[in-house]
Simulated assay, not measured.
Amino acid sequence: MAKRKVLRRARKILGEEPTLLVWCGIRGIPRPPKEIHRAAGKGRLKPGRHWTFYLGAVLFCVVVVPYLLMDLLSQKLNGNLDRDTRPDARTPDRPTAPAPHNGVFDGDWDLTAGQLLLRWYGTSPNRARLFLATRDRVCFAASPRRRVLPRSAGDVRLVTEFRSDEVRIEAEAGQPRGFAEFRLRFTDGSWLSLGNLADSDDADRFLRAVAGPYPGRRQGVVSGA
């Protein structure tokens, strides 16, 4: 269950009690065409990195890379490298290239889902977003901090919102923890898949609520979680 600090903040930014609440994110934001990105203001496409990431990168270069190079050199000297030069060994069948939108959204940057993606990371250096819904709204909130603890983030701000008749929430209950996803389908036909559900209890509760059917279900949003 979300901590009281997060719930209090959600009530404050919404002005009412949320009926749905879950931390989520995008597994991999696709890169838009340059002209579309430029027209949208060149917002951030990737989340900011915490300083520990850069420290780890430095340690990897200083410690791991030299070890790997020495090991590779040792294998060459000992003649243990595979020298098979047959054409079929050098050019194995490659898997089909993934779609440019990575299965994250429908692929049209001019529609609602694409426009939402363009400003997704520009509002926060962290990939985590608080997804909220009320009886008549679907909302996104984010913390301005680089590092976010979902159970105690009390500084989230409302990023954008939609009327409940503009978006439908689709999900299946009972998805494996750590791999659960849900989809937002907008009235213009565009769609966006969200995952990285941070809190297991909140994720299970959220998925059960939107999977329905429930008597309070209305335009894809349920009246109570």
Rank of each mutant, 00 (worst) to 15 (best):
M1Y: 09
A2P: 13
K3Q: 15
R4S: 15
V6W: 09
R8Y: 11
A10G: 09
R11S: 06
I13V: 15
G15H: 12
G15F: 14
G15M: 10
G15R: 10
E16Q: 10
L21D: 01
L21R: 06
V22D: 03
W23S: 05
C24W: 05
C24Q: 05
G25I: 08
I26W: 00
I26S: 00
G28I: 00
G28K: 01
P32I: 09
P33T: 04
E35A: 11
E35P: 02
H37R: 05
A39V: 04
A39Y: 06
A39H: 11
R44P: 03
L45F: 05
L45V: 08
G48R: 11
W51H: 11
Y54M: 05
Y54E: 08
F60E: 09
C61L: 15
C61E: 12
V62M: 12
V65C: 14
Y67V: 15
L68W: 12
M70L: 13
M70V: 14
L72V: 05
S74C: 07
Q75H: 15
Q75C: 13
Q75P: 01
D82P: 13
D84V: 12
P87R: 15
D88N: 13
A89C: 12
T91G: 02
D93F: 07
D93I: 15
H101L: 00
N102M: 10
N102D: 04
N102G: 04
V104H: 00
F105V: 03
D106Y: 04
D108F: 06
W109V: 02
T112G: 05
A113L: 02
G114L: 07
L117T: 10
L118Y: 10
R119H: 09
W120C: 02
T123D: 05
P125S: 06
P125E: 02
N126D: 14
R127W: 10
T134W: 03
D136N: 15
V138G: 01
C139M: 09
C139K: 04
C139L: 12
F140E: 02
F140G: 02
F140C: 03
F140N: 00
A141W: 06
S143L: 08
R145N: 14
R145C: 08
R146M: 05
V148N: 04
G154Q: 08
F162M: 01
R163M: 05
S164G: 13
S164N: 12
D165W: 09
V167G: 02
I169G: 00
E170G: 00
E170Y: 05
A171V: 07
E172S: 09
A173W: 12
A173S: 14
Q175K: 09
P176T: 04
E181D: 01
E181G: 01
E181P: 00
F182N: 01
F182D: 01
F182E: 01
R185Y: 00
R185H: 02
F186S: 01
W191T: 03
W191F: 14
S193N: 10
A198W: 07
A198I: 04
D199G: 07
D199Y: 13
D199V: 11
S200E: 14
S200C: 13
D204T: 14
D204V: 11
R208E: 11
R208P: 02
V210I: 07
A211P: 03
G212M: 05
P213K: 07
Y214E: 06
G216D: 11
G216H: 06
G216Y: 02
R217M: 12
R218A: 08
V221M: 09
V222R: 04
G224I: 14
